[in-house]
């Protein structure tokens, strides 16, 4: 579904991605783990078109049998239209928009008004707090509620692939668990997920496969279970001895 081929990105004078190649199959949850500054967020921003790579290709096909398109030549808004939704780091709700407007703006490129309203209602059914606070400005929600809002907003574009950046950041442990339940539910609905996480143990538990990024290069790759059992990974990312 998504294939990065030898992607290089420079940001301000630093070589942030040094030849990243990875692949995601339809229906998977793939985790991307690594230390701060390893290039995880840069990878997502490059896929979604916020950053332009210096070289390399990013090929995307929304479903099996559909033609692949090179995302590096497309604008961010066309990448959304192609079926990729990027839920950025740090929640980033629109403070000037109400909770419901935040959800609706996620469906900006869709024109099926009735279906949009139905999806808003569905997401509100899934996250009741988004209904009871529907008219509040987005930034008046708590951290966990904002996370639900931005995930809901990202789903409003009906993506085939969801890029999720640090959903657990700054949330209490039981909220983190709730977020990961939501991810499992999203996968059940047929959305493929590329998950960037600091919380490596959770990510490896949930992810079918995982890639480990270090200083802009992928250093390890394997199934979630394999990597969770790898002593290097345990030492570096899981706090093991």
């Amino acid at each position: 579904m998504l294939r990065l081929e030898d992607v290089h990105v420079r940001r301000g004078g630093t070589h942030a991605l040094r030849g990243v190649s990875l692949e995601i199959e339809e229906g998977e949850i793939v985790a991307l783990i690594g230390a701060n500054g390893a290039g995880k967020t840069t990878t997502l921003a490059t896929i979604s078109g916020l950053l332009r790579p210096q070289s390399g290709r990013i090929l995307f096909a929304p479903g099996r049998g559909e033609p692949e398109r090179d995302l590096t030549k497309m604008r961010a808004e066309d990448i959304v239209a192609a079926g990729i939704s990027h839920c950025p780091e740090g929640r980033q709700v629109f403070a000037n928009l109400s909770v419901t407007e935040n959800l609706r703006i996620g469906a900006y490129l869709r024109n099926d008004k009735a279906a949009i309203e139905k999806d808003v209602a569905d997401i509100q059914a899934q996250f009741p707090i988004l209904r009871s606070r529907a008219q509040l400005p987005g930034d008046r929600l708590s951290g966990g509620e904002q996370m639900m809002l931005v995930i809901g907003r990202a789903l409003m574009s009906k993506p085939r692939l969801l890029l999720l950046d640090e959903p657990s950041l700054g949330l209490a442990p039981q909220l983190v668990e709730q977020i990961f339940d939501i991810l499992a539910e999203i996968r059940r609905q047929g959305v493929t997920v590329l998950l960037v996480e600091q919380n490596a143990s959770m990510a490896l538990e949930l992810g079918d496969r995982a890639y480990v990024l270090e200083a802009g290069s992928l250093v390890l790759h394997g199934s979630g279970r394999e990597l969770a059992g790898n002593p290097d990974i345990q030492r570096a990312y899981l706090g093991g001895a």
Binding site: L50, R75, S85, C87, P88, Q92, Y108, L109
Partner: peptide, 12 residues
């Protein structure tokens, strides 16, 4: 409010 996030919504 935020160019990048707006672009991620598909806004030109």
């Amino acid at each position: 409010e935020n160019y990048d996030v707006a672009r991620l919504m598909g806004i030109n």
